[in-house]
């Protein structure tokens, strides 16, 4: 097992992926580092990769007039950053900024998507890992919307 394969195996998303499939993903993957304040991607840019956080914290932001960033979510160690690479037109909807020094595995989206087209088993195995993560994030976002802690007067 090479270094990138070992890093992928350490990430909870791929902890129990078959070895052969892990090797296929590894072919599209590389490790990267972002300093605090650096952007992983920007709204409107091509969603050509996704990121598995090995260590660090990534802030998702939307920007509004007046230059104020609306920070609505942070993603940390063991999580996946980026979903827009899965659905056309493959454009980022938000900014992703490293809040702290952040180590990630970056996976090339075009590379992986083309493997999905020829290997549906790989596509299925990865979708069954991506989808729960995204559904849980959807649930958490709804909970966040409820504004539960403000008390009845708010």
């Amino acid at each position: 097992m090479n270094t990138i394969e070992a890093s992928l195996r350490d990430h909870p998303l791929f902890a129990d992926l078959e070895d052969a499939m892990l090797r296929q993903v590894a072919r599209c993957a590389r490790t990267r580092h972002f300093d605090a304040g650096q952007y992983l991607f920007r709204e409107g840019g091509p969603a050509d990769a996704f990121f598995l956080v090995r260590q660090g914290l990534v802030a998702l932001e939307a920007h509004a007039p007046g230059g104020v960033a609306i920070l609505f979510s942070t993603l940390g160690t063991g999580e996946i950053v980026g979903a827009s690479w899965l659905v056309p037109p493959y454009r980022w909807m938000f900014d992703a900024r490293a809040s702290t020094a952040t180590h990630v595995i970056s996976v090339d989206a075009a590379c992986l998507r083309s493997q999905f087209e020829t290997d549906h088993d790989l596509g299925y195995a990865l979708m069954t890992r991506f989808l729960p993560a995204f559904v849980k994030r959807l649930h958490a976002t709804r909970l966040q919307m409820f504004d539960l802690y403000g008390g009845p007067t708010s």
Partner: peptide
Amino acid sequence: VTVDQADAAWRGSVGAVPALVPR
């Protein structure tokens, strides 16, 4: 600590507290 709504000065986590459990 995680907050539902952050401001520019916030350096911590943003999002619902159950999302912190897996981390």
